[in-house]
C-alpha cells in the first residue's frame, strides 16, 4: 500500500487483486442469476440450454422498458417476465412426447437471440435509465476501493437468493416436490403430482431469473444494449451449474470465481502486462474445464446430480 500512497490515487500491483475482486462482483451477477435459475430447472429434472437466448431477450426487454417508462426496476421486472414466458415455452415443447430438452434449448437460444436482435434494433442508440448502486465503501479513502465496493442491488439480491434457495430446496414442501420430480418422475407421479406441471414451474422460475440476469447486463454493467452484449454468459452459466453440483450456494461461488477470472486479463494489462492477453481472456473457460475434469468421475454419478436429468444419465 506504500506504493499506492506514494502515487496518490494509483494502486499499482495492488490493483490486480483489487481489480479481480471488483471485477468478480461486477461481472458475476448475470452468471449468478442464470446459474441459480438453471439450478432450479435442473433440480426438477430438465435442462434448459436456451437460457442464453433468455438472457439476451431479458437484456433487450429490460433496456427497452426502462427506456420507455424511465424506470429501470420496471425493466428488470419485464425482463423477468419475458424470461418466464421463454421458460414456459421451453416446458411446453418439452412436455411433448419424444422431444429432446437439450435440442429445444438450443432452438430457443437461437430464437431468443434472433428475436432480441430483431426487436432491439431501434434500442441500440437511445440511453435508458440505469439501475442504481449502493455505496458500501464510504469508509475508505482509496477511490478505487470505494468504487469496487459500489455494488448493485441485484448482486445483493443474488447473494441472499443463493442461501435462500438452498434452504428452500431442503426445507419446504415446494422444494421437496421439485426435488422429487428431479430424482424420480415415477415417485412424483405416485405422490399425485404432475411432473410436467412441476417442471413447467421450475423452468419458468429459471427463465425469470435468467431474464433478470440479462437486464443486469443492459441496465447496470456494462449498461447498454447492443448485439455484442452477451459473449456467451448465459450458456456458460449453464456449464457453471454442473460445475457447481446443482447446489445454489456453490453456484454463487462458481459465478464469483468465473467473474474474477474474467477480470484477471484486463487487470494485468492495466499494470503493463500485455503479453498473451487472448490466453488470459480465455482463463475462465480453461479454469471451468479444468475444474470439471478434476472433480468429475466416471464411476459414480455426480454427487447432487438429479437422477432424471438427461445429461447425467449414462
Amino acid at each position: 500500500m506504500a506504493v499506492a500512497a506514494a502515487a496518490g490515487t494509483a494502486l499499482g500491483w495492488w490493483g490486480v487483486p483489487l481489480g479481480v475482486v471488483a471485477g468478480a462482483v461486477r461481472v458475476s451477477t448475470p452468471f449468478l442469476f442464470v446459474s441459480l435459475g438453471e439450478c432450479l430447472t435442473e433440480r426438477s429434472g430438465r435442462i434448459n440450454l436456451g437460457l442464453e437466448g433468455t438472457l439476451v431477450m431479458g437484456a433487450m426487454t429490460g433496456y427497452g422498458v426502462s427506456y420507455l417508462t424511465g424506470s429501470p426496476w420496471l425493466g428488470v421486472l419485464a425482463a423477468g417476465l419475458v424470461g418466464a414466458v421463454f421458460g414456459a415455452t421451453h416446458a411446453a415443447f418439452c412436455s411433448l412426447p419424444r422431444v429432446n430438452d437439450i435440442a429445444i434449448g438450443i432452438a430457443l437460444m437461437l430464437f431468443g437471440i434472433g428475436l432480441a436482435f430483431y426487436i432491439g434494433k431501434p434500442l441500440i442508440e437511445p440511453q435508458a435509465a440505469m439501475l442504481p448502486s449502493i455505496n458500501l465503501g464510504w469508509w475508505s479513502s482509496v477511490p478505487p476501493l470505494r468504487d469496487a465496493l459500489r455494488v448493485n442491488v441485484l448482486f445483493l439480491i443474488g447473494v441472499v437468493l443463493a442461501p435462500a434457495l438452498v434452504w428452500g430446496l431442503k426445507n419446504t414442501r415446494w422444494g421437496l416436490i421439485l426435488r422429487t420430480a428431479g430424482e424420480s418422475a415415477d415417485a412424483a407421479l405416485a405422490l399425485g403430482y404432475s411432473v410436467n406441471l412441476i417442471r413447467l414451474g421450475a423452468t419458468m422460475a429459471g427463465g425469470f431469473l435468467a431474464g433478470i440476469g440479462g437486464s443486469f447486463l443492459s441496465l447496470y454493467y456494462p449498461g447498454s444494449w447492443n448485439e455484442r452484449l452477451s459473449s456467451g454468459q448465459g450458456i456458460t452459466a449453464v456449464a457453471l451449474v454442473i460445475f457447481a453440483r446443482w447446489d445454489p450456494m456453490l453456484c454463487f461461488w462458481a459465478s464469483i470465481l468465473f467473474g474474477g477470472a474474467g477480470a484477471f486479463g484486463p487487470a494485468l494489462q492495466s499494470v503493463g502486462v500485455t503479453e498473451g492477453y487472448y490466453l488470459f481472456n480465455a482463463a475462465p473457460y480453461i479454469l471451468t474445464l479444468l475444474i470439471m475434469i478434476i472433480t468429475c468421475s466416471p464411476r459414480r454419478t455426480l454427487t447432487g446430480a438429479p437422477a432424471e436429468l438427461s445429461i447425467t444419465r449414462s
Binding site: 430457443l108 437461437l110 430464437f111 437471440i113 434472433g114 428475436l115 432480441a116 436482435f117 430483431y118 434494433k121
Partner: peptide, 8 residues
C-alpha cells in the same frame, strides 16, 4: 436478425 428468427 430475421434470418435467426426464422431459423429458430
Amino acid at each position: 436478425a430475421s434470418v435467426m428468427v426464422l431459423q429458430g
